[in-house]
Design a protein around this nucleic acid. Structure first.
Ligand SMILES: [Zn+2]
Ligand SMILES: [Zn+2]
Ligand SMILES: [Zn+2]
Ligand SMILES: [Zn+2]
Lengths: 159, 159
DNA sequence: CTTGTAGTGTTATAATATTACACATATAGG
DNA sequence: CCTATATGTGTAATATTATAACACTACAAG
């Protein structure tokens, strides 16, 4: 499980995520169709966010559909079932790094290399929970995204 | 200073924000032009977020311009100078509740009445700071938005 | 088989945002 | 005051992101 920007064997990320999705779908009677799986694979290729139309370009190259609804439907499935997230700040989509675990994601987005690290929080147990409780507000969904510069890019900049 | 969804004399919010903007602009050699001021006034009318094209409709009615760049330029000015924020989750814009104070906003968005409460945090002193420090990530900008149901709408739902 | 549910293909369109360029206005220095 | 420069405006065109609508297909339950 990745907790930061350090290097890692990314093939594990991909394998884990696909297996988790396979298992989850078969256990819950969900159809993990060709297009849905392929979109997840495309997102899993790197820890970056991809725009819907970038993904669509891949699909189109592969003969899996060329119209926006194709990709938006697949993304909707993946996001709804927790296999991917929308990065609101970028209007882009990223594979989930903790699939199968109910969580509120926190994203650190490097504006230089565009890599994204997803960590997680329990909003109710953080300052958000305290603030919301004080205001009598019931939390249903959270968007927590931090933009900045990752360690590697900070080092590169010092040269 | 509003800290929650309770009722308040909203004319103070408007007056304060406009005065703060006036002062800040004259002190910093910024031109608080007619359109910029009017866009801020429109945003200040309620504690909700407005889409750029909703604002543009107001401006257009008032003869202040009918093309998208008119409103996007004004919004860019207001956001850059801290008088308004973009709500990423909604692709919409909201007047700042703490103008003149450097801060990282936290938004609570009621999905029923669409009211928004802006509170603030010091990201470096919260769990975000801890997480980022652990990852060696330097924070430049934060997006923290919480969607849910505000106290009034929770009460209404119980009837 | 029939019927309902979920998924797909396709066209069109909506909603959000930016580029580019000509023109106008403000401000600062001489 | 006059001019140079920076800043702001008007407008047309276009880019980017996302959804609506509807006909069709696949599949499973009864
Ligand atoms: Zn990885
Ligand atoms: Zn996740
Ligand atoms: Zn108010
Ligand atoms: Zn603010």
């Amino acid at each position: 499980m990745s907790v930061g920007f350090e290097n890692h064997d990314h093939t594990f990320c991909i394998q884990d995520a696909l297996e988790t999705a396979d298992t989850y779908c078969s256990e819950n009677g969900l159809q993990f169709t060709k297009t849905r799986r392929r979109v997840l694979e495309i997102l899993l290729m790197q820890h970056k966010a991809l725009g819907a139309y970038d993904i669509l370009a891949h699909l189109s190259d592969e003969g899996l559909g060329a119209q926006p609804p194709v990709v938006y439907r697949a993304l909707d499935f993946l996001v709804t079932n927790g296999f991917a997230h929308k990065i609101e700040k970028l209007n882009a989509y990223s594979a989930c790094s903790h699939p199968g675990i109910s969580h509120s994601p926190v994203f650190m987005i490097c504006r230089v290399c565009e890599n994204i690290v997803e960590t997680k929080t329990e909003p109710l147990h953080s300052f958000l929970g305290t603030t919301a409780e004080a205001a009598g507000f019931s939390i249903e969904d959270t968007v927590i995204e931090v933009e900045g510069v990752c360690p590697s890019c900070q080092k590169s900049a010092q040269i």
